[in-house]
Structures are given as C-alpha cells and as structure tokens.
Design a protein around this nucleic acid. Structure first.
Length: 350
DNA sequence: TAGGCCATCTGGTCCT
DNA sequence: AGGACCAGATGGCCTA
C-alpha cells in the first residue's frame, strides 16, 4: 500500500477501531458499515461515471512523461487512488480484517479447548499460548510413552516430561497442579531424594519446584524456551532409571541436539492429575512411586470440577476409571474414553 | 519502565 | 477475483 493511501485511510481506520471496541457488536457493525460504503461507492459511480477512466488516462500520460526522463518503473502500474477506488479498497480491507479477526478468534477458541485438556487448566491463571502448546506437546508425548511402554512412570519423570521447555512460572504451575505435595509424596521418595534432588531443589520444597533456568543463569532473557534441562529440577544421576519415560530422557539428557521430536500418538483428553496415593508397596515395582489418574474437566487441579477420584487413601475404587461417569460429559469422544480406560488399566495392571 | 503477551491491521502469497 | 493463511508491525495492558 502506498503511503498516500495509508494516510488517506487513517481517518477511516480510527473510526473502524472505535467500532471494534465491543467484540459482540463487531459483526453487525461491520456489516452495516460495509453496506453504507457500498452505497456510497455506487452513488459515486453514478454521479461520475467517467471518473475512473479519466484518472487512468491521466496516469498513463504521467507515465509516458516519466518514461522520457526516468527509467521505467517495473512491476504493475500504480494506479491513482480515485475516490471510488479508495472506497472499494477500504471495503475490501475491512472485509479482510473482519475475516482475519474471525479466523484468529477461531484459533483462540481452539487454543482454549486445548488449555482445558492439558494439565493445569485454570480460568483465572491461563497459560499463555506458547506455553499451552508446549505443555500439550509434552503431555501427548508423555502419555503416548506410557501407553507404548505399558509401565507407570515415576512421578518425577512424568513431571519432568511435562515441564520440558516450559518457563519457570509454568513449571511451578504444572508442579502445583499435579498436586506434588511433599508431605504425601516425599516420604516415599526420601531414600531417593539425594539422587533426585539437588540440595537447592530439596530446600525449595515444599510447595513448588525451584527451577533456575540455564538461560537465566547465563543472563539470557526469560523465559528459557526450549532450553530447559530437567536436571535443573531433579538431578539425574547416571544410571538412574527414569521409569517408562526413560527413552524420553535419554534424548533430553544425553543428546546434545534437539532431541525432542518424538512420534506422536493420538491425543488423549484425560487430564493427568497425579495425586499421590498410598499404594501397597511392591518391591521393585514402579508403583512404589506411582499415582492415580484423576480425571477432571474444566476445573483442573486448581479448582473447579472435583476430580472423579479422590486423591488419596487406599480406596479400592481409587484410580479405577469409572467410564460411566464420563459418558455424560460432552466434548469427549468415545475414543477418548476408551483411551482413558486403557490408560488406567495400564496403571493398575502393571 | 522494560519485557511479555495479546489483539488487530496489513500486505504478500497461494489456492480454488 | 476472492478467500485462507501467514508473518511483520503496532499499540495496549499487565506485571515484576
């Protein structure tokens, strides 16, 4: 767009911006404005039917004159903005703007539904777009890895997988949402703590993980997107297994390259709200440090809908997926429910 | 006040 | 030609 056109449009744009202040009234206002403009344009054409042609002729003459003195301009001729053309342009632009707005709203709606199916959904403290996408990617990968291996990962591994590449605030949020309560979680972990937690992180308990990003320590801008080393949350000792997510951490911790490009399986809508619960300890079993899936919709770990399963106690039904309870929930397909059931079966059969 | 996040506008490109 | 998609620019809002 030429500068002159932009300047001419400025006044119109500011009017448009004012109209757009109320999202609800956007479409109607826009439609109304468009109609008015079209009428105006039509009127203009009726009153000056020859205007466009005249202007074009003038322009051609100008071009010829220019051609004598200056090198010919390449590309399409720049046509003068007659009043009618300007009006048409404005209408086209406004239509395009409205379409673009709608498109972005659709995109945001989709992102919002994604927020609701990853851990840590909260209406009050929304994850940013980028964090939502990163968390979703990690979540999908972690769950698919569980399905692939058929083994329950230890909680640490799972949280690490979820938090990979997330900023510190989001990492804290995820940890909090996963209900990592040290009082119920750490006692079982105590013997392992020295190998899992660096002193700083151990001191940071209870509450949230204290994650110092490599980017921050290096004086780089926060957040440390894509550069997080999980060992900043939990110290990984060589040879220490990561449970079923071990392949994930093999890639993350050993490889120097961008190792996180796992194959993706169909997304699961289950929210992995990992409430640590007392389980009959089985020597050598992954379940020593295991957890139950509690399914929550919309409310997340920070409130809202109560989890279907209690978060603790040797409740015989704890961790058992009550599929019938899910049936009434709209927005989640039969396939997803099957996956949920599968997932829980894995956790209780392994 | 700087930086992060977001919504919107805009022009370019590709596709139908 | 018109719509979808994309990326850059811009300005507003919020928070540390």
């Amino acid at each position: 767009m030429t500068r002159s056109v932009r300047e001419e449009l400025t006044s119109v744009e500011s009017d448009e911006q004012r109209e757009l202040c109320s999202p609800a009234g956007r479409e109607t206002e826009r439609a109304g404005a468009g109609t008015e403009e079209e009428e105006e344009e039509e009127e203009d054409r009726l009153h000056h039917p020859e205007e466009d042609e005249e202007e074009d002729d003038e322009e051609d003459e100008e071009d010829e004159e220019d051609g004598e003195n200056k090198p010919k301009r390449r590309g399409p001729k720049k046509k003068k903005m007659t009043k009618a053309r300007l009006q048409r342009f404005k209408i086209r632009r406004m239509k395009a703007n409205a379409r673009e707005r709608n498109r972005m709203h659709g995109l945001n709606d989709a992102l919002e539904s994604l927020r609701k199916v990853v851990p840590c959904y909260s209406k009050t403290q929304k994850l940013s777009k980028i964090e939502t996408l990163r968390l979703a990617k990690n979540y999908i990968w972690a769950l698919s890895e569980i399905l692939r291996s058929g083994k329950a990962p230890d909680l640490m591994s799972f949280v690490q997988a979820l938090c990979k590449g997330l900023s510190q605030p989001t990492t804290n949020l995820v940890a909090g949402c996963l209900q990592l309560n040290p009082r119920t979680f750490l006692p079982e972990q105590t013997p392992d703590m020295p190998t899992h937690l660096p002193p700083a992180s151990a001191a940071a308990y209870p509450g949230h993980f204290s994650y110092q990003s490599p980017g921050l320590t290096a004086g780089l801008p926060s957040p440390p997107y894509g550069t997080m080393d999980p060992s900043h949350i939990f110290h990984q000792v060589k040879g220490q297994p990561y449970g079923s997510l071990e392949p994930f951490f093999d890639g993350v911790l050993v490889s120097d390259g961008p190792a996180f490009d796992p194959p993706l399986s169909p997304p699961l809508s289950i929210n992995g709200n990992f409430s640590s619960f007392k389980h009959e300890p089985v020597a050598g079993s992954d379940f020593d440090k295991s957890f139950s899936f509690s399914v929550h919709y919309g409310g997340g770990g920070t409130g809202g809908h109560p989890p279907i399963y209690g978060s603790g106690g040797p409740n015989p039904r704890c961790g058992e997926l009550q599929v019938e309870q899910l049936m009434g929930f709209d927005g989640h397909s039969h396939h997803e429910r099957l996956m949920n059931a599968q997932l829980n079966a894995i956790f209780h059969d392994s």
